[in-house]
Amino acid sequence: MEFLLHRTYFKEGTNGALFYKNHFMGFVIELPWFENKKQVSCIPEGEYILKPRFSEKFKHHLQLENVPGRSLILIHPANDARTELKGCLAPVGHLNGIGKGLYSRPLFQKILSYCHQAFERKEKVTLNIKS
Results as ranks from 00 to 15, higher is better:
Y9F: 10
Y9H: 11
F10P: 07
F10N: 11
K11D: 14
K11L: 15
E12P: 15
G13A: 11
G13Y: 06
N15I: 15
N15K: 15
N15P: 11
G16W: 07
A17P: 01
L18Y: 03
L18E: 03
F19E: 05
F19M: 13
N22I: 13
N22L: 07
N22H: 15
F24T: 10
F24N: 10
F24C: 08
M25G: 05
G26Q: 07
G26V: 14
F27A: 05
L31T: 00
P32N: 03
P32W: 13
W33P: 03
W33T: 05
E35H: 12
N36S: 08
K37G: 06
K38L: 09
Q39A: 06
V40P: 14
V40I: 13
S41V: 04
I43D: 08
P44E: 10
P44R: 14
E45Y: 11
G46N: 07
G46I: 05
I49N: 07
I49P: 06
K51Q: 14
P52K: 15
R53K: 08
F54V: 00
F54S: 00
F54L: 01
S55Y: 04
F58L: 03
F58Q: 01
K59T: 03
H60R: 10
H60I: 00
H61D: 02
L62D: 00
L62C: 02
Q63C: 09
Q63V: 10
Q63L: 12
E65F: 13
N66W: 15
V67I: 04
V67E: 03
V67P: 03
P68T: 08
G69V: 01
G69L: 03
R70D: 06
S71E: 09
S71W: 08
L72Y: 08
L74W: 11
I75W: 03
I75N: 00
I75H: 00
I75G: 00
H76V: 00
P77G: 02
A78T: 01
N79E: 07
N79M: 05
D80F: 08
A81H: 04
A81Y: 06
R82E: 15
T83F: 11
T83Q: 05
T83L: 05
T83G: 00
E84V: 01
L85V: 03
K86N: 14
K86R: 09
G87K: 04
G87C: 08
L89W: 01
A90Q: 01
P91G: 06
P91Y: 13
V92L: 11
V92M: 09
V92P: 12
G93F: 10
G93I: 12
L95Q: 04
L95H: 02
N96S: 08
N96R: 14
